[in-house]
Design a binder for these strands. Sequence first.
DNA 1: TACTGGATTATTTTT
DNA 2: TAATCCAGTA
Length: 741
Amino acid sequence: MEKTYTLSDTLNREQKEAVLHTEGPLLILAGAGTGKTRVLTNRIAWLIEQGVSPRHILAITFTNKAADEMRERVGRLVGAGSDQIWVSTFHSSCARILRRYADRIGYQNNFSIYDTDDSKSVIKEIIKKWNLDTKVYKDRTFLAKISSFKNHLVDTEDCMELAGSDVDEIMTARVYKEYEAQLKKSNAMDFDDLLLNTVRLFQTDAQVLEQYQERFRYIHIDEYQDTNKVQFVFVRLLAAKYHNLCVVGDDDQSIYRFRGADISNILDFEKYFPEAKTIRLEQNYRSTSNILDAANAVIANNRARKKKHLWTDQGTGEKIACYSAQTAYDEAEHIIEDIRKKMRTEGRKYSDFAILYRTNAQSRIFEEKCIGANIPYQLIGGVNFYARKEIKDMLAYLKTINNGMDDIAARRIINVPKRGIGQASIDKIAQHAFENDITFFDAAVRADQIVGLQRAAARIASFTEPFFKWRSCLDYLKLSEIFDDILETTGYRAELEAEQTEEAAERLQNLEELRNKIVSYEESAETPTLNGFLQEVALVAEIDSLESHSDYVVLMTLHGAKGLEFPVVYISGMEEGVFPGMLAIYSGDEGEIEEERRLCYVGITRAREELMLSWSRLRMVRGEQMYQKTSRFLEEIPKELFQPGAFEHQEKKRISFEDNSYTDAKASFASNAFAGMKKASAFTKAPLDYTTGDRVSHMKFGPGTVTAIQDGGRDYEVTVDFDRFGVKHMFAGFAKLKKQE
DNA sequence: TACTGGATTATTTTT
DNA sequence: TAATCCAGTA
């Protein structure tokens, strides 16, 4: 008992309340940095302390990394037994359940897990097979729609019904149906299927459901604001028996609407569980008040949210820095320079810094600058390790060994490395497989019986034959040994070695790294299997690779930063069209802008002590230079929170492409930005209807006289002497000057 | 069958 | 800009 006391002593009143409320549904509204992880870990520890078996506790986290951390922290609190708790992500949990029971819903338990690339390949095949016009029907669109259907528990039948008589919708429904058929035939599930099929399993098999309800009597869901419909149903089913469901979330940090996250899950929690208790955590232990005030000011502009008051007693701290750059290059340089300066003057470590940006495409410049400045950095996101060609190739071999029905995997590697099997042959095999309703691999095995393939048969056999050997070796050879044999037997390694290029060397190195991962899996798993390895690999997130104990500057997207914190945070690209992104602006949907604003809130609240916001006037967007206005989010932060002088300096540098008024109506702001962007990107120098000496008028600055016009390449740079505001330089495309008659 | 080069087109964010 | 696609050639 006394152990529990010390444990609760480190908690504030609300936190303690949340820890002690163990029976019945509980909603913890935990603002950024209010110690929700501490509450969760202490709560789990308390449960165990109360005699609840660790076996009966389930905790769903957002990433594998968060799961590991939580398990470790609970372990430190309670000692032995913590390894019995299920702590994992939604996807891993479902995969684990399905590995046992997928056969009850018509799959084999060794099913493959398709990543987005694989799914895309399936869609592409369908589009090709049906000769659809690729101008009209995009794989991306189908994929997004199918994913959305699955997240909303809409099956192919429902989908067809919903489509009504709309031609495009009917086509989508047909593609969806075919896609499902393909995956089923390949004994494969995509990411969404993991959840959907678990729900189906629970709904069709009362015995299995009951078993897991009994097992998970105490359920915890972290980042609840980012759950979608299927996840909600999954949770509801599991909790239906004991009702001991504790969810933690912050509606202001919901940033995954695009993948189906349904904010009403958290907003309406009390509706679904009328007996629910709600506890709000509002004391922030992370940031200084300047940072917190900025975050609060930004998020206050959102309408769809629960009002809350986050506060801190960490002191006011440093004011917020900002930097207005000419180019993205300049911006990166300044940030890197700032890091170096702080390393010298404040005695910081590299790992104190995080550079955040809206899109992965922005990362490259920072990478370059870090290399140039000799700063060790860790890039999170971008090209996933497991998405690299050589990795996917080798995994496809492993998948084909594991699940011969996996057509996507088999097709991927039938001619990799080159075996002289061309598209024509591959199509014939696929055709034969289709006609005889067998798998692609099996069709390849009997290539010698397929009309027109006799000549290629030997080459195809050289592909299929080794698989029989590998499959029979599975029981007595180690995974890593089979891996080595694949590299040798297929000549994959030899082919790369022969290339003698830097790129090939890098690929070889990546393969070595993959081998290391196999070895470490073999060492850590209690019963290592090929199946298990493939599952683990399919569900790792980029963020899982973040090494929090080593000394690196971290580069990542704002999304990636969720749940993390850093002493010093840089948020770059604070420009309309970048952040908020142009899709959000174009959509005209205020909800989209609000999502971006939440993302901004998440970004700001990552900072503990120092925050710098930066933007660039000029930015290269898909090969085109674009001039953009500063982000509206910047305007939403009270000026007095910024470092004194920071803005005067900006004003000068910013000249006046289009003024950003702090007082002006926000509404016109958005439409201006839109107009400006469109001009900057879409047009090439419309002829001007005024010349030097003409009287013109500007929307904001009023009347003035044109004193100079300079051809700036893409646009004219116009100098105007305004009657009331003095001389300003501006680009004609932005200024929208009207000639006065 | 494999490779080259020109054309085309795409852009959030991630399990 | 960068990745992907397609047509024509070896």
